[in-house]
Design a protein around this nucleic acid. Sequence first.
RNA 1: UCCUCGGUAGCUCAAUUGGCAGAGCGCCCGGCUGUUAACCGGGUGGUUGCAGGUUCGAGUCCUGCCCGGGGAGCCA
Length: 434
Amino acid sequence: MAEWVRIRDIGNYEGETVTLKGWLYLRTDKGRLKFLRVRDGSGVIQAVLFKKNVSPEAWQAADELTQESSLIVTGTVRADERAPGGYELDVRDLEVVHYAEPDYPIQPKEHGVGFLMANRHLWIRSPRQAAILRIRATVIRAIRDWLDNHDFVNVDTPILTPAAVEGTTTLFETDYFGKPAYLSQSGQLYNEANIFALGKVYCFGPTFRAEKSKTRRHLTEFWMVEPEMAFATLEDVMDVGEQMVSYVVQTVLEKHRRELEDLLERDVSVLEKITPPFPRISYDEAVEILHANGFENFPWGEDFGAPHETTISNQFEKPVFVYHYPTKAKAFYMEEVPDRPEVCRSVDLLAPEGYGEIIGGGQRIASVDLLEQRLREHNLPREAYEWYIDLRRYGSVPHAGFGLGVERTLAWICNLPHVRETIAFPRMLDHIYP
RNA sequence: UCCUCGGUAGCUCAAUUGGCAGAGCGCCCGGCUGUUAACCGGGUGGUUGCAGGUUCGAGUCCUGCCCGGGGAGCCA
């Protein structure tokens, strides 16, 4: 057998005889000539069989190949403009590992999303879905690389959390040795403890929200990276956010330009513009934009819904930071703006093209008194927060952080209609199979 | 939870005013040395989501239920 190579690297082997191991994606017979579209997880290539060039056994084997059969092919790599991808394999030998049963449900044609989701375990084999999953891996790695290279320490925060931190209506409850426990919605509060040990930290893991949300932007289980920094302010959050997001986008462009253009039909020119700095506007300015663009009656003080976010982000080519939200519209731990307590030092980053909020964060309350006041205002059980209050009692510092949602970021970069395509097995309201 | 659209062959869909259940793809058989979701010929394929009702007659009309898509609300 010749050297086993990956299809992605096939251009390095022009004129050489190589072996590929993969699955049959598509077959076209033309008499004594067969075209086999073979994929191996790294890419797809067209293998060409001429009857006169292979053994009768190999020809017979190829004749009986069904879609998704696994196979090993050996042949010569040849550049050919007629082949998708520019290279094809002139097959000399073919071995079938397993004949797939002839009723593989997913055809290379249009299918409904309900059918595809029911067959998600097979759908991920299609080139477009596999490309998204490869880009997802690049996004995650780029995030980690950027943070690791900027002195952030990765500290894992717990997924099982104790009772009733902020009400249980949006938390998944589980049984913890006879007591209720809840799947984590965020690692932020634990991150705030970790920065006092390590300065700058991040956690990166799955988070769970039991919200009855049924939109293109919501999953019940999704992945979030949450950096947190000691001796930091709202402005530091925006600085880090725009640097990190830009690095992620440019890294994806560098590694996946061809997949973005060919498989995802992404206009990469809009991604090329994603470089620092990002526009920064206040909540007040955002409300003015709404008033001038069809939402004349939007009341100051309300949080933005999806149509509002889209209208605001459509004013810009880059993601836009919106800061200083009304204090009442945000979480209890947000630091207030000096001399203007009705707004807080919070920030959201809205992705372009209507993809919504991909970052939410801000500066945290540093004072014991203000934190205790906020806990009372929000009717939160003080005993559950004793440890959190301690952080303000022993060397409190200004600190800030944010969370970035992997799936929404990926949906935006890949220009996907729905976040369900950004993860291999999405968990949604009413969908937990397969 | 609310609004809205939908459910017909394995898939994507059609079926006029209530009047014979259809096509393409897939799959099976045959043909073709450059196909790009090939093409040509033949074959295969149905509890019209479920239950009830109106009617000589229901995929079509009515009632209830189930399931799915899109959106809203919700959303550290």
